[in-house]
Structures are given as C-alpha cells and as structure tokens.
Amino acid sequence: MSVATGAEPDLAPVSPVTTGPEGGAAALLGGPRRRRALATRRQKLVAGVIVLSALGLLVFRGLTSAMDYYLTAAQAVAQKAQLGTRDFRIQGTVMRDVHQVGATLDFTITSHGVRVPVVSTGSPSSLFKPGIPVVLDGHWQGDHFSSYQIMVQHGSNYVEAHPRTAAAGAPAR
C-alpha cells in the first residue's frame, strides 16, 4: 500500500535497504512488506529448527552408539549376563570354520583367546574370509551369537599384491 504524501524524499525507493513506499507507513500499519518479513522470519525459524533437530539427532546417535561402537568377543562373553538378548555389536577375527548353509553363514570369531560361535543371515562383503576381523550386529541366542549384519574391518596397512603390475587385481581371498 502506498500513501501519497506529495513530499517524498528524493532518494526514497532505490534499494531494499532504504525504506520504500511499501515499507514506510505501510509497514507500521501491517502492510504486505511487514507480512513478507514475518513470513521470511518464520521460514528462517523453521529452517533453524530443522537444522538444529538434525544436528541434535546426529549428536544423540553419536553419543549413544558411536563411542562404544563394539565389544570384543572377550568382552561380550564376560558381559553375557548383562547383555541378555538385546542387540549389540561384537568384534573378532574369523576362524577357518566358515560354512554356508542356505542363506545362513556359520563360523567362529575369536578375540584374546575367547571363541564365539556365530550364525549369521547377513551377506558380507567380498573381503570376508578366514583371518579377517569383522564386526557383527546381532544378539546372544543361547550359546551362539545370532547376527543379521556382517561388517568387514580392515586395517590401515596396505601391501601391494603384485608389485609393478595391476593386471591380476581380483580381491585377495
């Protein structure tokens, strides 16, 4: 809305930072510019709430699960009574007794001399093999660990498989 006064300043509506005909008296009366400003402020508020909520979720997930990402097989056996049948992650090195029975994979993991038999329905990556450390999602079921996800853990040491040639490059099994 514009109020004709007949005495507008020379340089009134040249840029958004100056108060133009819509932003002067109209703003005081709750005109469209004021409504737009309120809408913009509301959008900013909603955007801020979304960003903060996302951040809060990430931090919450981080604090609750990331700091104690897994228990070693030895720790899991020691805490078996407290863990009950709730889900947690267990870590250990795969032993040689890997058997595929239909869609399930039976094997044993070891850590600090403690062995844990595993029955898994998860499909591991192609790096899965005896001797490689794995992290398993699942829970205790009787005397074995029932897993639904296998994650292969690899170290930070890298060794060239075939020095000076990249020809035969299938992942080592």
Partner: peptide
C-alpha cells in the same frame, strides 16, 4: 588406475585410497 598394483587385502578396492 593403471600403474599402482592392487592390495593384498582389499584388491582393486584399494584405489579408493
């Protein structure tokens, strides 16, 4: 992709390194 060899553990996936 062509000069560096694959890795003992990761094979060709080492190229992400």
């Amino acid at each position: 992709l062509w000069v560096s060899p694959p890795d003992v553990v990761q094979g060709q996936y080492v190229r992400m390194l």
